[in-house]
Amino acid sequence: MLLIDCPYCGARPELEFVYGGQAHVARPRNPAECSDEQWADFLYWRDNSRGVHAERWRHTHGCGQFFNALRDTTNDHFLATYRVGEAAPALERVARPRT
């Protein structure tokens, strides 16, 4: 079970959270101006990263807030969690866990 650092509540077990898919996929401001291809991109196309992945989590059984996280998909280590609206922290500044 993952240990997830909610930016509002602190470290909590994965049981309290719901995964929310890839982060930083903004809904187009004017969907009507999107081509079919752009809309399909927004709806369906997601990264499948091996390595660092920016993703959304919601602390459903806690504060209820959505937040973003950087997770290494190869080992499930969280490199950072940060609030909605904040930019992803630069990776050089993220402390790597000891392996």
Binding site: V18, G20, Q65
Partner: peptide
């Protein structure tokens, strides 16, 4: 409710 919260918090804060 989760869908509403998602849009409220992340698209239209």
């Amino acid at each position: 409710l989760a869908l509403m919260e998602d849009y409220r918090q992340t698209e239209w804060p």
